[in-house]
Amino acid sequence: MTRQVRLAIMTGAGGVGKTTLSVNLGYEIARRNKKVAIFDLDPQGSINVACRLNKMPAARKTTAWIYSGFFGGEYSLTPVWEDNVNNLSVFQGGSPLFKIMPMLAQQEGILALRKALETYPLKEDLIIFDCPATLETLPRTALAAATHLLIPLVPDPKAIDGTRVLIDWYLKSCEEMDLNPKPEILGFVINNVEKGAEHQRLTDAIIPRYEERGWQVFGPIRHYTSFVNAWSEAVPLRVHRTTHPALPALEEIRDEVIGRMK
């Protein structure tokens, strides 16, 4: 019997490779014969690009439907990358999410995602919530529903401070929503590290500091142009290049997540 992991991928700053991480981690875990669904909670709907999905799905077919008040368990899961795996699917996000934001002003709305998954449970071993980079209501719904958190960041002052704000927000939100137990912070992923000295210095500085505080750090993962290429081809990194140097870090996260399913 495996336990469902609901992993919210959140950041305190944009452009840190959140969606890249979501889809590739989802893919890596699906390859291990686990059933994985990725919920795109981002109004940008970047996953539609990453997996080359229809960019204008009907509102009913998106994650916005969960918050609509009409949801009755209709998870529109679209299988992706079927040539390579057969148990990975995406619940698309996109602009309909803008429309339901006002509904999230109330506690009821904030708990909608969690309620949905409790009332209409999914069989998936892993559900990934790909959250927008803003710390407002949508990520809050994910926080309420998640069992774990994964936080990617780039080693620059903006993202490091954004991550500090995120931690504050996480603690405060858990307290306000009375989440007991709190979703566990699975770890931080140091991502998109460039060769410049300042990126290196900050990477070296932050890793031990997270670790001293009992948090796991994955990576650092360098910045590779092949990320862009994989996006352009709309394929997983491993398909783009079987021996890509970023894969070991992804595998490390993969194993950690699978470990939480037991």
């Binding site: 490091i160 931690i167 500091r209």
Partner: peptide
Amino acid sequence: VNVDDFFAEVDQTSEVH
């Protein structure tokens, strides 16, 4: 930038919570 500044705030926050 000194990263200890960020982490000092992280510690404060966590402690309060």
